Simulated scan of single mutants.
Amino acid sequence: MSAPVPSSTLPAHLEEVRARVTNWGRWGDDDQRGCGNLLDDAAARRGAACVRTGERLSLALDLGPDSPQVGQPPHRLNPELTMEAINERDPLVPGVWASSDDTVRMSTCAATHLDTLAHVSYDGLLWNGFPASSITPDGGARYCGASTLTPIVTRGVVIDIARLRGAEALDEVEPGYAITGDDLAEAYDAAGLAPEPGDALLVRTGDVRHLHAGRRERYAKGDEFRFPGPSLHSVEWVRQHDIAVMVTDTYAFEAFPPPAPDWSDTLCVHMLQIRDMGLLQGQNWDMEALAARCADAGRWDVLLLAAPEPIVGATSAPVAPVAVL
């Protein structure tokens, strides 16, 4: 049900990029998976071929009161755990057992997560032309919600630009370091790898070290709202190489400030990658241990496993990703 592309409110420099990177209609007018279609059997086999030692590393942050949310933007909640039953017995069931049950109230993007293709819109449209008005208070996202996300089984490539620049973290080089397509190509070359359709880019900036050190405000709000991350100048490279997934160890995902001095292109990477390309994006992934292991081993490719929670109607999905070396 793809709609014709109307006159856009995008700034002209973004419209030029949009026209070159759009994937609308590529997998059919009713497609809700976007670049998840690139996560095919061949991508899974390439990922499996990366397994050498079998070591498994979690890339997920803990879900708890010290998760990244600090109220910017509003409405986002860290997980709140409520114990509903503690060592209770069911009087209708025989035996000597006891059990405990609990509930969690949280934002779906509270910590490590994937954004759905319903997460970002502009000009009243979501990915592939679905109407943004299809997201409602009672049902959430009618199209492109979390239950449509593709489970990730593919080759993950650790993109550690900080290490390539001889720094512990990119904000030591520049608080708003804007990762370009040339940076991504350099990381592949340094790893001795070539991009393959369906790859997942695990972009390490080192920014998550602020969260680990208890500097939650710094992690969530940046250095005066300056963040390192992928920039507008990385978008076309990602599209040209049919990357399926791109995740970062940052709160904002993309570089801030945006390119335009008046910030009229704020969240340009989100808009172009999610709404126009159908790319699977993720934030708050913890690549610290993985990057250290990869540096020790002299290799930067892993099997990436990540199954997002299929919450019907959700616009983001919690995920507990695992890298297998």
Rank of each mutant, 00 (worst) to 15 (best):
Asp199Cys: 05
Tyr177Val: 03
Leu290Met: 12
Gly298Tyr: 11
Val324Ser: 13
Asp262Phe: 03
Glu16Met: 08
Pro261Arg: 12
Ala178Gly: 14
Gly124Asn: 12
Val269Leu: 00
Gly36Lys: 02
Glu224Cys: 06
Tyr122Cys: 14
Thr154Asn: 09
Lys221Pro: 00
Ile161Trp: 01
Met287Ile: 06
Glu172Phe: 02
Ala306Met: 10
Ser58Glu: 11
Val302Thr: 14
Ser147Leu: 04
Ala111Leu: 03
Ile161Met: 10
Thr248Val: 06
Ile152Met: 14
Val319Pro: 01
Gly36Arg: 01
Ser7Ile: 12
Pro73His: 03
Ser234Ala: 15
Arg142Pro: 07
Ser2Leu: 13
Leu267Arg: 11
Gly278Cys: 05
Asp182Cys: 04
Asn23Leu: 14
Leu201Lys: 00
Gly95Ala: 13
Ala320Lys: 11
Gln69Gly: 02
Asp115Ala: 06
Gly71Asp: 07
Asp160Lys: 01
Leu279Glu: 02
Ile86Glu: 11
Ala260Leu: 15
Arg209Met: 08
Ala314Trp: 06
Ile243Phe: 04
Leu77Tyr: 04
Ala43Trp: 05
His13Asp: 14
Met287Gln: 14
Gln69Glu: 11
Pro6Asn: 10
Ala320Pro: 03
Arg209Lys: 11
Pro137Val: 12
Ala292Asn: 06
Leu10Gly: 05
Gly64Val: 06
Gln281Pro: 00
Thr112Pro: 03
Arg204Tyr: 04
Thr150His: 04
Leu10Asn: 03
Asp171Glu: 15
Val302His: 13
Pro175Thr: 00
Gly298Phe: 10
Ala12Leu: 13
Ala111Arg: 00
Phe253Met: 03
Ala306Phe: 08
Gln32Trp: 01
Arg226Gln: 07
Val203Asp: 00
Met106Cys: 14
Ile311Asp: 10
Met246Arg: 01
Thr136Arg: 15
Thr148Cys: 09
Ala187Gln: 00
Asn78Val: 04
Glu88Ser: 04
Thr82Trp: 07
Asp115Glu: 15
Pro79Ala: 10
Arg52His: 15
Glu55Cys: 12
Pro228Glu: 01
Ile311Leu: 15
Leu77Pro: 04
Glu80Arg: 15
Leu184Tyr: 06
Ala178Val: 13
Val235Pro: 02
Leu14Val: 15
Met1Cys: 11
Leu170Asp: 12
Ser316Trp: 04
Pro321Phe: 08
Arg18Cys: 02
Leu149Ser: 03
Asp265Met: 11
Met83Lys: 07
Gly313Ala: 10
Thr154Tyr: 09
Lys221Asn: 13
Val158Cys: 15
Met106Arg: 07
Val70Ser: 00
Pro137Asp: 12
Asp242Phe: 03
Thr9Ile: 13
Val324His: 12
Ile152Asn: 08
Asp242Lys: 04
Pro94Asp: 14
Arg26Ser: 05
Gly95His: 12
Ala292Phe: 03
Val322Pro: 10
